[in-house]
Design a protein around this nucleic acid. Structure first.
Length: 232
DNA sequence: AGCACA
């Protein structure tokens, strides 16, 4: 009843997406948002009248999809709560990995012209957006220094300091994460210093709540965000 | 609301 009677699937189906967002941005943001739950094999979004506002995110493991369905249910994404279910059918990229992929001839309404060019089986990794490849932040993974020492050194502040972000992080991505917490005001990316940002809240109680909730949140698997109070 | 793989 919660997510319908659809059995678990490696791929999640998302609807109620903001239709004004361009396809490529949407796919990249979905990739960033969901990669915290596991390895993503593909993100599919079409802009056709029938399919806009929807997307599929394919995980390499079913449990990753299950966690995503539960934990990201109704997550405010581009100002609209995501509605997430398991996909009804197996994604092509999954079938290809299993070797069970049959070029689409099971579609009744589709003309059979499309499958002609399906001869070539290219690696499906090309569809993954800003993957885990060239994005190392120019050096070894920064060490976590979010021990109590840092907490004590920096007094509470309504402004949060965010580090260890992937360089391709956009203000919009951070807004989506932080705006769900009461008192959120704005995100400020520092153009001159990629990988860091400031997030303003109305007061330090509210900023603390957001910090607790989002500290360590991974925008990509190797980028747990480090959140501290900004220095005054 | 709408389940595809341009």
């Amino acid at each position: 009843m919660l997510s319908g009677d659809i059995p678990p699937n490696q791929t999640i189906y998302i609807k109620n997406l903001n239709e004004k967002i361009k396809k490529d941005e949407l796919k990249r943001s979905l990739y960033c948002l969901f990669s915290q739950y596991g390895r993503i094999l593909d993100v599919v979004a079409l802009k056709t009248p029938k399919l806009r506002g929807q997307a599929w995110v394919c995980f390499s493991e079913v449990p990753a999809a299950s966690n995503a369905v539960r934990q990201m249910q109704n997550f405010p994404f581009y100002d609209k709560p995501m509605r997430i279910q398991y996909a009804k059918t197996k994604s092509d990229c999954i079938a290809k990995e299993e070797g069970s992929y049959v070029p689409r001839e099971k579609k009744k309404k589709q003309e059979e012209k499309a499958e002609r060019k399906r001869r070539a089986d290219e690696a499906q990794q090309s569809a993954v957006p800003n993957g885990t490849h060239g994005a190392s932040n120019g050096g070894p993974t920064p060490s976590f220094r979010q021990g109590p020492s840092t907490q004590e050194a920096v007094p509470p502040n309504n402004i949060l300091f965010i580090e260890n972000l992937p360089h391709e992080t956009t203000g919009r991505m951070l807004e989506m994460l932080f705006e769900q917490y009461p008192g959120f005001k704005e995100v400020r990316l520092i153009e001159a210093k990629p990988g860091i940002a400031f997030v303003d809240f109305d007061d330090e109680v509210q900023s603390s709540m957001a910090m607790q909730a989002l500290n360590g949140f991974k925008i990509t698997p190797q980028n747990p965000m480090i959140i501290t109070f900004a220095k005054k």
